[in-house]
């Protein structure tokens, strides 16, 4: 595919998302729309964490911290600087507002990526559970610091964030995250990430700068988590540090493990399942979270390698399963 075709394809997709947004958003039940948006945000989180946990094998449970940094940074940008920029830019609002939003998101993502760099550094000395607990700690420290900054709401929460997030943006960034992570993973850099997961000593002996790849995984993963935080803040128009506790990080880790470490399609599916599950369980009311946790435990016990294991979902695979089933049926 040449450059021109690729750019055209991107424009085509953006147009499609815009049309979808304009068609669906006003007609859809707001509750369903919200679930759809949560699905997208959770996919971004799960796929980006999979780069760190699944592909590079660095056990991180601090994703909520990166998300918080991205969310608060972008919200502060659009809230404080946004109106001034809109005033000074003599551009039509339909054009300048998205511009401010994207700038805010990218700024949030960048700051989160910088935090990812800081968190990635201990990964050079620590591994496994020790690293996990440090990333968790970093996440909590980030949260406590935000709690102490009054300009972004502190303990009250950050309200009146402009409502910029729409289905269009969520679709766009979800697809962007998936494409970026997928293309990275299926490249020479992706193999380098995987080699770090498989055997660090051997990877290093084969000329892989394992330090650089570990930190890079954290930086890229954190960047997208930051974007996800920004999308969430500009959707709810409100941010509170309680949404970014280690419980949120756990949720994302669950998506990655449930989907299969190192399976992008698995992460996507698990993100959707774990977003829908609490909603589907709403009728059982008080028992909802009890069921949720029991299901989680049962899923892990019965399918410990995750839904897809390390494999990716593909049609051939599905065909193979069906033909086998068919053969069995015929045989019987």
């Amino acid at each position: 595919m040449n450059q021109l075709k690729k750019i055209l394809l991107i424009i085509l997709f953006l147009g499609l998302f815009l049309v979808l947004d304009l068609l669906i958003s006003p007609r859809m039940n707001p509750y369903y729309l919200q679930i759809l948006i949560y699905c997208g945000i959770n996919i971004i989180l799960a796929v980006s964490l999979n780069l760190i946990n699944g592909f590079t094998g660095q056990f991180s449970i601090g994703h909520a911290g990166f998300m918080a940094i991205g969310g608060y940074t972008s919200a502060a940008f659009t809230f404080y600087l946004g109106p001034k920029i809109l005033e000074t830019l003599f551009l039509p609002l339909w054009f300048s507002k998205p511009l401010v939003f994207v700038a805010g998101l990218l700024l949030g993502g960048t700051l989160a990526a910088f935090a990812g760099l800081l968190v990635g550094i201990p990964s050079l000395r620590l591994r496994g559970d020790y690293l996990a607990i440090v990333t968790l700690g970093f996440g909590e420290i980030i949260r406590v610091f935000i709690l102490n900054i009054d300009a972004i709401g502190g303990a009250r929460g950050f309200s009146d964030v402009p409502k910029y997030t729409s289905l269009f943006w969520v679709l766009g960034f979800t697809v962007l995250t998936i494409v970026v992570v997928r293309n990275l993973v299926y490249s020479t850099h992706g193999r380098a990430f995987l080699s770090v997961r498989e055997d660090e000593v051997a990877a290093e002996a084969m000329g892989i700068n394992t330090t650089w790849y570990k930190v890079t995984a954290f930086v890229i993963g954190a960047f997208f988590a930051g974007i996800a935080g920004g999308l969430l803040g500009h959707y709810l128009q409100y941010l509170h540090t309680n949404s970014f506790t280690f419980i949120k990080s756990f949720e994302v880790v669950m998506m990655v493990v449930l989907g299969g470490m190192g399976s992008i399609t698995g992460s996507i599916l698990a993100a959707v399942i774990l977003t829908l599950l609490p909603e589907v369980l709403r009728p059982v009311k008080d028992y909802r979270m009890v069921f949720y946790s029991i299901l989680l435990v049962i899923l892990m016990i019965t399918r410990p390698q995750g839904i897809f294991g390390v494999r990716e979902f593909n049609w051939d695979w599905l065909k193979k399963i069906f033909s086998r089933k068919k053969a069995q049926a015929e045989g019987a």
Partner: peptide
Amino acid sequence: AYKPLRKSSRLTALITAIGVSLLLENGGQL
């Protein structure tokens, strides 16, 4: 919860532990 997972990866066991923790908290609230 943990015995069936003796042979699977440590991460799986960890997620299960988180699941059990959630269960006790939510069960406790009930």
